[in-house]
Design a protein around this nucleic acid. Structure first.
Lengths: 168, 168
DNA sequence: CCTACTTGCTTCGAATTCGGAACAGGAGAA
DNA sequence: TTCTCCTGTTCCGAATTCGAAGCAAGTAGG
């Protein structure tokens, strides 16, 4: 793999850095607002938003984990916090006693409804306001392709001996 | 601000989610590889890469912090780890005794050179391979505008009473 | 029925991050 | 000079994350 590494062109390098910086700044700003308005971290908001969007407001722990956190234990921790605040409830599934079904409470729905307008306004102000006509379509097109490719390429296969210690 | 929140169109929502998911998966995959190949976290690699790219391989702590971490203390922690491994050195500036100048060692340069090909290959495989002709230019164009807008809009002004506790 | 294997979630220990407090070196005014 | 800010770094406590290990529940084979 030392022979065929053509490197990245300046434009590729700039695009790579731009993706990382934009997402980082966006998440940081959005997270700060969510904490200020609803005392919610970005991860907690994502969990609640997913539940609100789900049929009957119920999802299994495993389904919730996908795309939000990269470990089950992290979700257990966050679910514990949300449960303690009365924003969700957890109960065993009658079909499969192993499965924990998470349900949004009315309080949780109310909190999401209360912080959602500000959240949307933040995203619009930071991400979409500076865009020109056609930028949105172009961005969706490109990132849609990239996302589909990433989902089809599980990252696990590439790191057989990654010895990560602690939080990433 | 409750009257004028038109929400986000489905395409905007999709683009927003795509940005967050792509960057998250990309960072996760790249981080895993950096740890496997050089026992470096993504943040540590960013610090070393910045130093290698800087004139004389030297930067002040404050300049390093901008864009890498969101707190000075976090940079101090990482600099301590890199210093302990002999990848950087820290010394006071003769001009201003307050300033700490960070310098990459030969060992640090060697490590960056060793992990850079794999890092570049990861970025290419995950981010650029699925792109079609013209996608790169479009992405650079859009995100360049967004990034410039974000840099001109400091996030501090929008969260006067954010009471964050611990890591974000 | 009983044993082996898999799946789903939680507990535990370690690592990383942040904000604020504390500390030290310069710059300017009287 | 001395006093008062300002800049820059480090220390500390709290919060969040991950991986590994442990435990309960379901599934397949004999």
């Amino acid at each position: 793999m030392t022979d065929e590494t053509p490197g990245l062109s300046p434009e590729e390098l700039g695009a790579y850095f731009a993706v990382m910086e934009v997402s980082s700044l966006l998440q940081y700003a959005v997270d700060a607002h969510l904490r200020a308005e609803g005392d919610l971290s970005y991860v907690q908001f994502q969990i609640l938003a997913r539940l609100v969007d789900a049929p009957d407001g119920r999802l299994r722990m495993t389904d919730l984990a996908d795309g939000v956190v990269y470990s089950r234990s992290g979700l257990t921790y966050q679910a514990g916090l949300l449960d303690k605040r009365g924003l969700i409830t957890r109960s065993s599934s009658p079909d499969d006693e192993r499965v924990i079904v998470v349900t949004v409470t009315d309080s949780g729905r109310g909190l999401v409804a209360r912080v959602l307008p500000g959240h949307v306004a933040d995203v619009r102000r930071l991400l979409f306001d500076p865009m020109a006509t056609g930028d949105l379509a172009a961005l969706s097109e490109v990132l849609g392709r990239v996302r589909a490719h990433m989902r089809a390429t599980p990252p696990r296969s590439a790191k057989p001996r990654a010895k990560r210690r602690g939080a990433g």
